[in-house]
Design a protein around this nucleic acid. Sequence first.
DNA 1: CGCTCACTAAACAATA
DNA 2: GTATTGTTTAGTGAGC
Length: 629
Amino acid sequence: MMQESGIETKSNGSAIQNGASSGNHLLECSLREVRSNGETPSVEIGAADLAHLQQQQALQVARQFLLQQQQQQQVSGLKSPKRNDKQPALQVPVSVAMMTPQVITPQQMQQILQQQVLTPQQLQVLLQQQQALMLQQQQLQEFYKKQQEQLQLQLLQQQHAGKQPKEPQQQQVATQQLAFQQQLLQMQQLQQQHLLSLQRQGLLTIQPGQATLPLQPLAQGMIPTELQQLWKEVTTSHTAEEIASNNHSSLDLSTTCVSSSAPSKTSLIINPHASTNGQLSVHTPKRESLSHEEHSHSHPLYGHGVCKWPGCEAVCEDFQSFLKHLNNEHALDDRSTAQCRVQMQVVQQLELQLAKDKERLQAMMTHLHVKSTEPKATPQPLNLVSSVTLSKTASEASPQSLPHTPTTPTTPITPVIQGPSVITTTSMHNVEPIRRRCPNKYNVAISSADLAQNQEFYKNAEVRPPFTYASLIRQAILESPEKQLTLNEIYNWFTRMFAYFRRNAATWKNAVRHNLSLHKCFVRVENVKGAVWTVDELEFQKRRPQKISGNPSLIKNIQTSHTYCTPLNAALQASMADNSIPLYTTASMGNPTLGNLASAMREDLNGAMEHTNSNESDSSPGRSPMQAM
DNA sequence: CGCTCACTAAACAATA
DNA sequence: GTATTGTTTAGTGAGC
C-alpha cells in the first residue's frame, strides 16, 4: 500500500481539468495527459529513451521468437506461416524504397511499431520471416564462400600446375560466375516471393511507383558489404594473374566473411535435411503447433506427436511415449551434447543478429530523433484501438497523445492506415493513452479472446488493453478458481496481467471500484474472510441486448466480436468485419492456447451469439440476435 | 441533438 | 489516524 502511495500522489490537476475548455479538444486532452503524467515521476523522458524503450519492446517480441525457435530446436522445411495466408489485406504502409526488400529493416520495424498496426502475433510472424531470410542470406554467403574457396583452390592448382591454357581457366571462372549468378537469381526470386507473400498477407504495402523490386537486394541485406565485396571479387578475378596477386586478399575476404558465414555453417549443419535445391529452409513454428504444444504437454521438444529433437522427428503417440523416447534416444551422451552445442550456436547466432539489428535500429532511431524538432517522437496513440473504428480514431488520437504538433519523425513515409489491433511499445510509457478508448461496448467476448491471445504482450508492454474495465474485472473474476475475488485480488490480477496497470494505480483502481459498484453484474458477497466480488452472468449478458436491438450496425459489431473468438488476430478480424466477411465457424475451432479464457468467452457468446453463430451467411440485419432475445 | 456508454475524478462513508 | 473498500455524483468524450 505504501509503494502505491508514492505513485498515487495526487496532482492538483483537477483545476487544470476544470479549467480546460471543453471546446478545445486538443488542449484539454493535452492537459489531461500532462495531468495524468504528473502522477508519475517519468514525465520527462527524452526521445532517446522513447526510442530505446520502443526498440526494447520490439526486441522483446523478437526474443520471444528466438526462445520459441530455441525450444523448437528443429529446423525443417521452409514454411511460410500458414496463419498469415489467411490474412487479408491488412495495410501496413511500408515504403519499399526505405527498406531492403528481403528483410524487415529496423526502419520498417519501427514504422510498424509506430503505426501500431500489428498485433504481437503479426510482429512475430514478421520476425520469423526475417529470420528465414537471414538464413537464406547466410546460405548465400556460404555459397559465396565455397565458390570462392573452390575458385582459389582451382586457380592455385592451376598455378602450381603451371602451364594450363588460360582459356579453360577463364571458362571455369565464367562457369563459376554463371553458377553464382544463377544462385543469386534464385535467391532473389525467393525474396521476391517472400515479398509477394508479405504483400498478400497485407503485412507490406508497396506503394505504386515504388514497386520496383530491385534485383540488387542481396547487396543491401543484413550483410551488404561482404556480399558486394565477394561479388566484386568473383567478377573481377578473370585472370589467374589477378587472382594470384589477390590471393591473400581473396582469402582474407573469405575469412572476413566467416564472422557472418560461420553461423550459416552451423545452420546448415544442424539442418542437413532442411535444404532443398540449395535453398535453406527454416521451420517457422506455426501458431497451431505452438498451441498444440501448449495444449498438450507444452514440452518444447514435443509437438504434433513428433519429437522435435533436432534431426529426430520420431513419432510419439502420446506424451508418455515421448518422454520414454526422450530418455532413451536423447540421453546424456556425446551425440546429444554435440547437438545441444550446435543448437546453442544457432541460438547464439540468432541473438547476435538480433543485437546487430538492435544496434542498427538504435542508430537509426537516434538519428531520426536528433533530426526531429521535438524529441517526443511518439505520435501514435497508446491505446489499442479496437476493431471496427479505425481510421477515424487514428487520425484523432494522435494529437491527443501529443501536447505539441506532431512532427512525426518516425513515420515519415506513407500515410498512416491505422490497423485495428494495434501493437504499441513500452517506449510510449510516458505518454498516456488517449483517455477515451474506443469502447468495446458490445464485445466483451472480444476482450477475452484478444486478451488471451495477447496475454504475454500485455503482460510485458505498457500498452493499454482495449477492454473495458467491466470486462476485465469480469475476466479476472472468472479466471479465479472459485469465480470470486476480493478487490485486492482484482487489483493484483490487473497488475499481473497488464503492465499498463502497474502505473497510475490511483486512477485505474478507482475505476475498478467504480465499475464494481456501478454495474449490477458485479455482486459483492460477504465472505468469511471479508467481501468478495462475483459476476452475475445473467446481468452481464443482459447488458448488451438492450443496446443492440434493431441496429444493424451493432449487429455487425456482434459479428465482429464473434470473430474474435477465433485465433485470428484482431486486425484480421476487424478487416474481415469491415469487409463483411463472416467468420463465425472459426469460433468453434477455438485456438487451444486460448484455454480457459476462450471457453469463458464462448460461454459469454452462448447467450448473445448463438443465433448469429448458426448461420455463416447470417449477416443480414434482419436477423438480429437481440430480436431473438 | 439527444441518448447511452465508458472513463476519470472526486467526495464521502464504512471498515480494517 | 490511516489505509482500504465501497458508493455515489459529476464531467467529459465518443458512438449511435
